[in-house]
Amino acid sequence: MLLVRSLLFNVLFYLATAVMMIGGLPALASRRGVIRLAQVWARVMLWLLRVIVGLRVEFRGLEHRPPGGFVVAAKHQSALETLALVTVLDDFTYILKRELQWLPLFGWYLSRGGMVAIDRSKGSRALVLMNEEAAAAMAEGRQLIIFPEGTRRPPGAPPAYKYGVAHLYDRLGVPCQPVAVNTGLFWRRRSVLRRPGTAVIAFLPPIPPGLARDAFYPLLQERIEAATEALLREAAPAGAARDAVATGPTPAA
């Protein structure tokens, strides 16, 4: 039954996404229109997850969100936090590969939505350009979402943080909002299964601007990892954590 529900959700996910991208073309008239459409899309997906799979997303610590522009540094275990975070951030932007903007239709939304694109072909210059775009987003009071490890990591995997988040924090001079998750217990990477339960996305107290890079970097990792480990232990009585960590990611069909 779990497989059937998961497959049904996956089919509706792609179908609803296609319908909303086509029907939402008028939103391309403005950046704000794209942001609002993305938030509606994400809420529809979370509703489908709840109704079909029985998977709910619980946000904690939303009161910790600082006003104005800030960096959201989130633990990355699943595609779930990628879509869920946009529902609680008023004017978000993601750091992403420039190549994604070349995708038909989907790329139009990324470009018009003002995402911060990295052109890796420019080498070291790419970091400078990324920082300039990120600074422009901060000046507009936006929330810049970054995954410090760069890719999804299964629950229980050793941390693999990149130093780029420290450079960004130092360059922008804004608060950094650490975010812990246990989403990988329910929506695993490279798996078609979506498990029922309550996935938690926890906003931790922000790190104020002004710390030295070498002080900020270990502090960010310590806070995110400690809170993530606590969320995994909290979910363990339901058996989800033991199952996910013991068996690892399940290859997609």
Rank of each mutant, 00 (worst) to 15 (best):
H76F: 02
R120T: 13
T87W: 04
R60L: 02
S111F: 01
Q101Y: 03
G123M: 09
L96A: 08
L89K: 08
I118V: 15
F59C: 05
V71R: 09
P67I: 00
T82H: 11
D119H: 09
L89H: 14
V71A: 11
D91G: 00
E81T: 03
D90L: 07
T82E: 15
G69W: 05
A79C: 01
E99Q: 13
L100V: 03
V71H: 06
V72P: 05
E58Q: 10
L110K: 09
G107S: 00
G69L: 06
T93H: 00
M115C: 11
G69E: 06
L89P: 10
Y94V: 02
M115D: 13
R98I: 02
G68F: 08
G61C: 09
F106R: 11
E63H: 09
V71W: 14
L85E: 12
D91R: 03
K122C: 04
L85C: 04
S124C: 02
R60G: 10
L105R: 08
L100S: 12
R112E: 03
L85G: 06
L80G: 08
Y94Q: 09
P67G: 08
W108N: 04
L96H: 09
E58A: 02
S111P: 00
G107A: 00
R98D: 12
G114E: 08
R120K: 10
L83Q: 09
S124P: 15
E63V: 01
L100I: 08
L96P: 06
T93L: 02
V72D: 13
T87G: 01
G61H: 12
D119G: 12
V86E: 05
L105N: 03
L83N: 08
L100R: 09
F106A: 09
T82V: 13
G69H: 05
D90Q: 15
G69R: 13
Y109S: 07
T93V: 12
R112P: 01
I95D: 11
R65V: 15
R120G: 12
L110F: 12
G114W: 03
S111M: 03
L110M: 14
K122G: 02
A73M: 08
T93F: 00
F92V: 01
L62T: 15
R60N: 07
G61S: 01
K97W: 13
Q77P: 15
L96Q: 09
L89M: 15
S111E: 10
V71L: 13
V72S: 07
T82S: 14
A74F: 03
D91I: 01
L85Q: 13
L89A: 10
Y109E: 10
H76C: 02
R112Y: 04
S78V: 03
F92T: 02
V116T: 15
F106Q: 12
T93N: 07
G123C: 14
D91E: 11
G113L: 04
T87A: 02
R65N: 12
H64K: 11
R65A: 13
G61L: 01
